[in-house]
């Protein structure tokens, strides 16, 4: 089965992101396909490479990045939500005149249309949120 995943909450405050991670891992292990993971609302905060939690805690952003690399998975951060919350890639840095960027490996910034397209293309859409 082909899944689309929406993550509506940031890391740590809410369990939603880790639940999504666990779901995605289990789905891949069971042979399913993840069409796309779309990060929305505070979920965009999963896409920064600047988190450094204590060593005995999970690094949620890095785990997403590693999973994306291993499975060639599409991780999309909503541009409108990202702009509000300061998640920036090279293109956004240049467009908005910022002095740096913070997008994590394996994530890309794109529009809300990517969420709708994922819903259309996937067999099931699963939303993780509050």
């Amino acid at each position: 089965m082909k899944f689309a995943i929406q993550v509506n909450e940031g890391p740590y405050t809410h369990e939603a992101s880790v639940s999504a991670l666990n779901f995605v891992k289990a789905a891949l292990e069971a042979g399913h396909e993840i069409f796309r993971v779309f990060f929305y609302h505070d979920g965009v905060n999963n896409g920064t490479r600047y988190t450094s939690p204590p060593q005995d805690d999970i690094n949620i952003a890095n785990t997403w990045s590693a999973l994306a690399k291993e499975h060639n998975m599409d991780l999309v951060v909503c541009v409108a939500a990202a702009q509000r919350r300061g998640i920036v890639d090279q293109g956004e840095q240049e467009r908005n005149g910022k002095d740096g960027n913070n997008i994590a490996d394996g994530f890309r910034i794109s529009g809300l249309g990517q969420l709708i397209e994922a819903g259309i293309e996937a067999d099931r859409t699963v939303v993780f949120g509050d």
Binding site: A80, G111, L112, G113, L115, I116, E117, I120
Partner: peptide, 19 residues
């Protein structure tokens, strides 16, 4: 919270997809 407004943004974008 921002959920209502950002939901509305998805609805307005989604409308262009003729679903």
């Amino acid at each position: 919270t921002v959920y209502a407004w950002e939901s509305l943004e998805v609805v307005l974008i989604g409308a262009a997809f003729d679903q």
